[in-house]
């Protein structure tokens, strides 16, 4: 039963991701991106990682896609999708995606384990390694985010 839902939501997640890239209407693309994120959250649920699934929905579904849609709705959508695709951008994007896809396949092959195991379900299992074993990388990442925030404020500030 669990496997059925796992593969169902995994399929939905990928399918909606494809739609979000290929759809002509950007708002609908944004909505299918949301559907993809929520399906991914459901995938985590079926794998027993309840906490990560919920956080996935809150962060991506509740905050990031709202921000995307907000930005997209303020833009002039009519002029969208009329520019022809440039060969160079398609080539570079395609090459990067290929490399990523290959490395994901390799990782899946190398760390393959049969069956879906529930390892991390609650907040504690995540918090303990994060705040003890991996405290330094965690703090470095938070400094990185702070830098990004300060940068965004500096860029977005109105000139006096």
């Amino acid at each position: 039963m669990r496997e059925v839902f796992f593969y169902l939501f995994a399929f939905l997640s990928v399918a909606f991701a494809v739609i979000s890239v290929t759809h002509k209407n950007v708002i609908k693309g944004g909505v299918s991106l949301l559907a993809s994120f929520v399906s991914l959250g459901a995938v985590y649920f079926t794998a027993g990682a309840e906490f990560i699934g919920i956080v996935q929905v809150i962060v991506y579904g509740g905050a990031i896609v709202v921000l995307y849609l907000f930005a997209l709705m303020t833009m002039d959508l009519k002029s969208f999708g009329k520019e022809p695709l440039r060969t160079l951008s398609v080539a570079v994007g395609g090459a990067i995606s290929l490399i990523l896809f290959a490395s994901i396949l390799y990782a899946g092959y190398k760390f393959y384990s049969s069956g879906i195991t529930a390892g991390i379900s609650g907040a504690e299992e995540i918090a303990l390694p994060l705040f003890y074993r991996f405290l330094l990388p965690f703090e470095v990442v938070s400094v990185l985010l702070l830098v990004a925030t300060v940068g965004a404020v500096a860029v977005g500030r109105r000139e006096e």
Binding site: G41, E50, F51, I54, V55, V57, I58, G61, G62, S121, G122, A123
Partner: peptide
């Protein structure tokens, strides 16, 4: 286990 978070989500 994470019901409160689920309500928030």
């Amino acid at each position: 286990k994470s019901a409160l978070l689920f309500v928030m989500a």
